[in-house]
């Protein structure tokens, strides 16, 4: 299933990242996964959190620009060819990957990858056909 990721616009200025994380922490939000894409002027903070609605509200009331979008969270078999195999499924079906970032959980031995795909529906189909494990909201909560 698709998971909602939230993205936050962060100006490349002292203390801004800290401020965003601080807002989330004060709102009692648990961050499951995070990545930052950055340029010299700004960064995009991407987050998978415990409560999107609450996180978005807290950030917006602190004047952050926030956006929600769909990503897939996929479990990667823990062997050297794991990620390559998964990407291969997508590549075979000519599905472009916009970006990925990985995180680990202490409850499972597998690595977990967040993927933004150009065509998420097609991507989901391709991964399901090969029995790749796409995590549900419930799975993520239990990580």
């Amino acid at each position: 299933m698709k998971i909602q990721q939230i993205s936050v616009f962060i100006e490349n200025k002292e203390g801004r990242l800290k401020k965003a994380i601080d807002v989330l922490s004060k709102a009692g939000i648990n961050i499951r996964a995070l990545s930052i894409a950055d340029t010299s002027k700004f960064g995009i903070l991407r987050l998978i959190v415990s409560d999107n609605k609450k996180a978005k509200e807290a950030l917006e009331s602190n004047k952050f620009v926030v956006k929600e979008n769909d990503v897939l969270v996929v479990e990667i078999p823990d062997h050297p060819d794991g990620l390559n195999t998964i990407l291969g499924y997508l590549d075979d079906d000519k599905i472009n990957v916009e970006y990925i970032y990985a995180f680990v959980s202490n409850k499972t031995d597998e690595a977990i990858v967040v993927m933004k795909l150009e065509n998420i529906e097609e991507g989901m189909k391709a991964l399901k056909e090969h029995n790749a494990k796409i995590l549900t909201l419930e799975d993520i909560k239990n990580l």
Binding site: I44, V65, V66, N69, E98, Y99, K116
Partner: peptide, 14 residues
């Protein structure tokens, strides 16, 4: 100023 309609999670869009 960035606004929600002028913000994307993708760098190439930005």
């Amino acid at each position: 100023e960035a606004t929600p309609s002028l913000f994307s999670d993708e760098m190439k869009e930005m």
